[in-house]
Amino acid sequence: MNPVITVASKEFKDGLRNRWIIAITLMFAVFSVGLSFFGSVASGTVGFMSLPVTITSLASLAVFIIPLIALMLAYDAIVGEDEAGTLLLLLTYPLSRFQLLMGKFLGHGLILAVSTVIGFGSSAVIILALAPQVPFGEVLMHFSAFILSSLLLGWVFVAMAYLVSVSVSEKSKAAGLSLVIWFLFVLVFDLALLAFLVSYQGDLNEATLSYFLLLNPTDVFRLFNFIGFEDQNVAVGVMALAKSVQPSIALLLLTLVAWIIAPLLVAYRLFSKRDV
């Protein structure tokens, strides 16, 4: 068997064995079903609101959770094997570092794929069952888009976790650095961008500035999920920036894909130079 597949299937089986897959799936299912039906509790109603509200609130929450889960899943991919001594051993097998990294990515990627599809897909199924007024086609389309972008977002952070994992020598450092990355992309970036915008108000073209959002994969993810619903008053904060420019769906997806490939390539380069 191809060594990439061998490594990937071990990672996936590890995901089943240590209950990561079931835990992530359940978490996604609970929070997406919960948001779909109880997201409007604050406004005094219980029940399914509308597809735009559901998807945008799902995206607002997913943008915090998915990167965290992906980082936690994959931060020790290389440094963990190194600490256990198995990295040294694996590299004496007929297996290149590229194949090892790809195998890990395939395995972790598949774990996220299964959890995302089943977890979020279950709430689509429940909406279809409990809210028959919503057209089947729309649920299918919006949820597919949401699941696809969630998956890409997860893979982006798996790739970033590898970047962390190959550049440090201890697991604890990798965990710490992963948290820093999460903090930077999920919280700091938007605040910094808003601060920048406020202090240079008027001097900068809003459209230009909105392209800065492409520098943050979490913003790309949110743009992608907010874009179909611009009539809704759901775009707040930096998302409001993008109202004036409507980046194309293709551009957003390509950006996410680039955000997967770039960290992976850098991680591979660093891994090649890493001493074992």
Binding site: G85, T86, L89
Partner: peptide, 8 residues
């Protein structure tokens, strides 16, 4: 056979 390996 490495000196100390904890395997999985």
């Amino acid at each position: 056979l490495p000196e100390s390996v904890s395997f999985y």
